[in-house]
Computed example of a mutant assay.
Amino acid sequence: MANLDSKAKLRWACRRGMLELDVLFMPFVEDAYDALSEKDKGIFQRLLEGDDPDLFAWFMGHEKSDDEELDYMVQLILNRVKV
């Protein structure tokens, strides 16, 4: 995925085929993305390259990504949405 240098492009990339992913990604982009380090922004953008079934399994806790950076980002997003 090309560097998503604009917020509009990033929002578009966050639109997924699964509502469960949309409700995680969209608030994260709006509320937390700008505060991430450049490295973490890159990891988040890489996460968005994933297939919806894999992302769903990771976020629902059914599986864990073999990529430590992607797993870190999944946990960061999950911790952010917990009440």
Rank of each mutant, 00 (worst) to 15 (best):
residue 3 N to P: 09
residue 3 N to D: 01
residue 42 G to E: 12
residue 62 H to A: 10
residue 24 L to Y: 04
residue 80 R to E: 15
residue 6 S to F: 04
residue 17 G to D: 04
residue 24 L to K: 01
residue 27 P to T: 06
residue 43 I to Y: 03
residue 17 G to H: 08
residue 24 L to G: 01
residue 59 F to Q: 08
residue 33 Y to K: 12
residue 35 A to E: 02
residue 11 R to K: 08
residue 8 A to L: 14
residue 60 M to H: 06
residue 64 K to A: 05
residue 56 F to R: 14
residue 73 M to K: 05
residue 18 M to P: 00
residue 67 D to G: 05
residue 6 S to R: 09
residue 9 K to P: 00
residue 31 D to I: 00
residue 44 F to S: 15
residue 65 S to N: 14
residue 81 V to Y: 14
residue 73 M to W: 07
residue 69 E to R: 06
residue 6 S to V: 05
residue 14 C to D: 01
residue 30 E to C: 04
residue 23 V to C: 08
residue 64 K to R: 10
residue 28 F to I: 12
residue 67 D to F: 07
residue 70 L to M: 06
residue 28 F to P: 11
residue 72 Y to Q: 13
residue 37 S to L: 07
residue 25 F to W: 04
residue 58 W to F: 15
residue 4 L to H: 02
residue 81 V to R: 12
residue 52 D to L: 08
residue 15 R to I: 14
residue 55 L to W: 01
residue 32 A to Y: 13
residue 72 Y to M: 13
residue 21 L to C: 03
residue 75 Q to E: 11
residue 57 A to I: 00
residue 17 G to P: 09
residue 30 E to L: 03
residue 81 V to T: 12
residue 28 F to R: 04
residue 52 D to C: 07
residue 59 F to M: 08
residue 19 L to T: 01
residue 47 L to Q: 07
residue 60 M to V: 11
residue 75 Q to H: 03
residue 77 I to H: 06
residue 59 F to K: 04
residue 6 S to L: 08
residue 37 S to F: 05
residue 47 L to D: 01
residue 50 G to M: 08
residue 33 Y to F: 12
residue 13 A to Q: 11
residue 63 E to T: 15
residue 10 L to C: 05
residue 12 W to H: 06
residue 2 A to T: 09
residue 45 Q to C: 06
residue 34 D to S: 10
residue 76 L to I: 02
residue 64 K to I: 12
residue 47 L to K: 11
residue 5 D to C: 03
residue 25 F to Q: 09
residue 69 E to Y: 04
residue 80 R to I: 15
residue 33 Y to C: 11
residue 37 S to V: 01
residue 77 I to W: 04
residue 73 M to N: 01
residue 14 C to Y: 00
residue 10 L to Y: 07
residue 67 D to S: 09
residue 2 A to K: 08
residue 70 L to E: 09
residue 21 L to F: 03
residue 70 L to F: 02
residue 31 D to A: 13
residue 35 A to C: 00
residue 14 C to V: 14
residue 44 F to H: 15
residue 20 E to L: 05
residue 69 E to H: 01
residue 65 S to P: 00
residue 49 E to P: 11
residue 64 K to G: 00
residue 76 L to C: 04
residue 28 F to A: 09
residue 46 R to V: 02
residue 23 V to K: 09
residue 72 Y to W: 11
residue 36 L to S: 02
residue 34 D to Q: 11
residue 8 A to I: 14
residue 77 I to Y: 05
residue 5 D to W: 00
residue 7 K to D: 12
residue 50 G to Y: 03
residue 48 L to D: 05
residue 4 L to S: 02
residue 46 R to H: 09
residue 79 N to H: 04
residue 40 D to M: 12
residue 42 G to Q: 10
residue 27 P to A: 05
residue 31 D to W: 00
residue 55 L to N: 02
residue 51 D to Q: 13
residue 67 D to H: 12
residue 12 W to T: 12
residue 45 Q to V: 12
residue 74 V to L: 06
residue 65 S to G: 05
residue 78 L to I: 03
residue 51 D to K: 10
residue 41 K to L: 11
residue 34 D to A: 12
residue 68 E to P: 10
residue 37 S to A: 03
residue 78 L to D: 00
